[in-house]
């Protein structure tokens, strides 16, 4: 029997798009349990919407019949599920030990200067959100960061300038 999902909400669920549903349905074939698909669905929705709004979360909850509270517990656990809107490009900035040794603090200060944002903030033009990330596994080319899906290595202030202007236009 299905789990009864009754938690009443003040917020209205968003209807998932056909694309989102198609991708979620595909995930259903890969996992023997719906709960696993819940986390996948959060990622799918984020891919399409940029982040997971309350409405989206409830939309998934309704579609998969997973309690919203459970989904919220999962969504807020993982680093890469954004429960707040993010900019067009998310900068995942590695500030772990090797990058730190190699001077990532200076690079971060430079980004902060350029974009006028600190960790967790989005630039005014909405182009960039800066988020710290644990070691990106490219320590021999530290400091490193990701912008969207792309990795950038051996960062210097100059490189940052180029990267920012490249992505701003994207």
């Amino acid at each position: 029997m299905s789990k009864e999902v009754i938690a009443s909400t003040a917020t209205k669920p968003r209807k998932l798009s056909a694309e989102e549903i198609a991708e979620i349905e595909h995930e259903m074939t890969l996992y023997p349990d719906k709960k696993a698909v819940g986390l996948e669905a959060l990622k799918i929705v984020q891919k399409h919407q940029g982040w997971v709004s309350d409405e989206s979360l409830l939309g998934i909850s309704k579609y998969l019949e997973i309690p919203a509270a459970d989904l919220e517990g999962v969504a807020t656990f993982f680093n890469l599920v954004y429960r707040q809107p993010v900019g067009k490009n998310v900068i995942l900035f590695c500030d772990s030990v090797s990058c730190w040794i190699m001077g990532c603090e200076n690079i971060k200060a430079h980004i902060k200067d350029k974009l006028d944002i600190d960790y967790g903030e989005t630039s005014k033009d909405g182009d960039f959100t800066l988020i710290p990330v644990p070691c990106l596994g490219d320590c021999d080319r530290a400091p490193v960061m990701m912008v969207g899906p792309d990795l950038h290595r051996n960062l210097t202030p100059e490189k940052i300038n180029t990267i920012i202007s490249d992505y701003s236009s994207k």
């Binding site: 772990s96 030990v97 090797s98 644990p134 070691c135 596994g137 490219d138 320590c139 021999d140």
Partner: peptide, 8 residues
């Protein structure tokens, strides 16, 4: 899941 700092 390689995420241990300094592991690459």
């Amino acid at each position: 899941d390689e995420m241990e700092p300094g592991t690459f």
